[in-house]
């Protein structure tokens, strides 16, 4: 008689598939969808709406002051902003954070790009990212092209902008 697999092994197999899916998946399942609204609260002016991002590729970077990996890419984001191609946009969204530490973070890294505030995370939740930092690339019509997970380099960000420009 054929013995059934021990439940623990079945669980491990399921877990393995699940973890691999997390590790290799590059999709949030929202590619091609219009980007959800951005929060109205502003940490660093000017205020930016989705309408302001139309007409060129855009990157929306979700971060928090308590997020250590966010510090790894903070300088890269400012470098990118300093050399943004004409028509491209970059906006940061501070996610489930406190205003004081968030402002200190912006000052520490010398950010000059617009940053919005989403203290309860209700706006970010609609983008369906699963960790911080996450950078969402939009095409010129405001549709989501891709979500980059984890800290990014200037090259990664430029590549994402180029990809979004082509769409």
């Amino acid at each position: 008689m054929r013995r059934a697999l021990p439940p623990a092994l079945i669980v491990l197999a399921v877990v393995g598939v699940f973890v691999v899916e997390i590790l290799t998946a590059s999709s949030n399942g929202n590619e091609g969808e219009p980007a959800p609204p951005l929060p109205a609260a502003v940490l660093r002016a000017p205020k930016v709406t989705l309408a302001d991002l139309r007409g060129g590729p855009a990157l929306i970077n979700f971060w928090a002051s308590w997020c250590d990996p966010c510090r790894e890419e903070a300088a890269e984001l400012e470098r990118l902003y300093g050399s943004l191609p004409t028509g491209a946009h970059l906006v940061g969204v501070d996610y489930t954070d406190q205003e004081g530490p968030a402002r200190a973070f912006i000052k520490t890294y010398g950010w000059t790009f617009p940053v919005l505030s989403d203290p309860d995370g209700v706006f970010g939740a609609r983008y369906r990212f699963t960790g911080l930092p996450s950078t969402v690339a939009l095409d010129s019509r405001g549709r989501i092209v891709r979500t980059l997970r984890g800290p990014q380099t200037v090259s990664d960000l430029r590549r994402a902008l180029n990809e979004a420009k082509r769409d």
């Binding site: 439940p7 623990a8 669980v11 491990l12 877990v15 699940f18 973890v19 997390i22 590790l23 997020c67 250590d68 990996p69 790894e72 699963t130 960790g131 911080l132 930092p133 997970r149 984890g150 800290p151």
Partner: peptide, 24 residues
């Protein structure tokens, strides 16, 4: 955690959790 990026550490935690502490 300098050797792990954001996603890797989250996934590692899930893997550790599920293999050692969590289900089954």
């Amino acid at each position: 955690i300098t050797s792990l990026g954001w996603l890797s550490s989250a996934s590692l935690a899930v893997l550790v959790a599920l293999l050692l502490g969590g289900c089954g």
